[in-house]
Write a protein that binds this DNA or RNA. Structure first.
Lengths: 247, 247
DNA sequence: CGAGTGGTTTGATCCAGATCAACGAGGTTG
DNA sequence: CAACCTCGTTGATCTGGATCAAACCACTCG
């Protein structure tokens, strides 16, 4: 269990003490309200690599926060094509897109052995009416998720393969930093095929682009771990790796 | 003023009588609550083609509902590239992605002379605490927006140029039907350059794809209006226009 | 240990769609 | 009415990244 994650035996203070509180639901709440939140959260539920946390189409009975590890979400559309929608790390909330119709729109799968916090929807829904701060934070997080998707749209819609990879690495690194970790190594827990699917390219291209970035001494690859050797250069690739914009 | 839109002189019943209520904020509210909502909504504000409703970076003082006409939203990223994020039609809500930090993340521009309803954020924020149904509907709409973005991601990430155009036409047509209109003609109020930017392709390609769809008698073009002659075939193109998925 | 297996990398071709260039149809201006 | 826009269409090339094919690990299992 990583040092950033609280222990199971002090559940009553789980959220208040959690080192991820500033990224998660408790943010902006007073001590009293955090305590109310804690009473309904199940903390530190283990989930094994490869297992699904929930499946597309399931009734939404809870939303989840990642405690440790990593997960991916994926959708299968009407034509049976799978699309990876996102990768989730400690502090991230899962299931927000299903709040509207109380059905999960995507499947969430653990990329490595992970621990998650379960926040039952029914009770959360009531608590939200009692605690205005909680409603605001929930809306903040939903609106944040909207912005993230929009950022991703920008990337997928306009950037070259090098730009996409660089953007992803920069984004994963920034998210590490928000959690108080070093900028790198970034661990690519997902398989190449997931990366390829997520970025809308082929695994061969992923491989070639990573090799090129390595040859330019911008990154260093060691199995799943990516050391970022030249962050500004990587950001530059993330920025320049776009087709020329019309005006 | 289109028949679907209420008149200015009965503001006190604006939302309750609006034919778009089932798509908009009032959905699911009781009469009393709708009346509370009506007191704070400014209905039918005109906005001229080409004018901005709000700009990226502006403080969010209100969210908006489209009454008539059409708008686009666009973001300019750090590198100065513009990306069209979406097109908005009567009943759609604008500004939700800024609710979190109370700053507009995108610029909203009228594609034709339009009318919009203005819902002041401050008052809405308070009303939301009083009316649980309103909170739920607002969350439903945010979660809907999330799903829309995800759908778009699916399209942009995986589909061929023909698939993208077909998907857009099908989506615009379905949205017409939700507003109680015929499936077509779909009016492409936006310029080719906006369409190209939105779909992540070039205007020349847009033109060629539209021509091909016309040659196959799937659509008929008349200036900005697209008649859909063979809806199943178009849906088929929307579905098939994807690269083969890995497993 | 060798055979089998799932994942990654490398090499050789091919093609959808970008790019470059030219033209046509309205609309506006002096 | 010519000169000039803006916007959309069409034609001819070029190229990034998909596709096809094969080799290359690193593990596991009998």
């Amino acid at each position: 269990m990583p040092a950033t994650f609280r222990h199971l035996d002090d559940v009553q203070e789980a959220c208040g003490r959690c080192s991820l509180a500033h990224l998660c639901l408790p943010y902006g709440l007073g001590i009293d309200d955090i305590q109310k939140l804690e009473t309904l959260v199940d903390v530190g539920i283990p989930i094994a690599r490869g297992k699904d946390l929930f499946n597309q189409g399931d009734a939404l009975t809870a939303i989840y926060a990642v405690g440790s590890g990593a997960l991916k979400t994926s959708m299968i559309d009407a034509e049976g094509l799978e699309q990876i929608m996102g990768f989730y790390y400690p502090g991230d909330l899962l299931g927000l897109d299903g709040l509207g119709d109380e059905v999960h729109h995507c499947t969430a799968t653990a990329l490595e052995d992970s621990q998650i916090c379960r926040i039952p929807f029914e009770q959360l829904d009531h608590l939200v009416d009692e605690v205005p701060g909680l409603r605001r934070q929930l809306m903040r997080l939903m609106s944040q998720a909207l912005s993230d998707d929009e950022q991703l749209l920008l990337t997928l819609g306009r950037k070259s393969s090098e730009g996409r990879i660089a953007t992803l690495l920069v984004s994963l690194s920034r998210r590490r930093q928000m959690r108080g970790l070093d900028a790198s190594p970034v661990r690519l827990s997902m398989k190449r095929v997931d990366l390829a699917n997520f970025l809308g390219m082929r695994i061969e291209t992923i491989s070639r682009v990573l090799r090129r970035l390595q040859e330019r001494h911008i990154i260093a690859l060691d199995r799943a771990d990516v050391m970022i050797l030249d962050f500004p250069a990587l950001e530059n690739w993330a920025a320049r790796g776009a087709w020329v914009a019309d005006q």
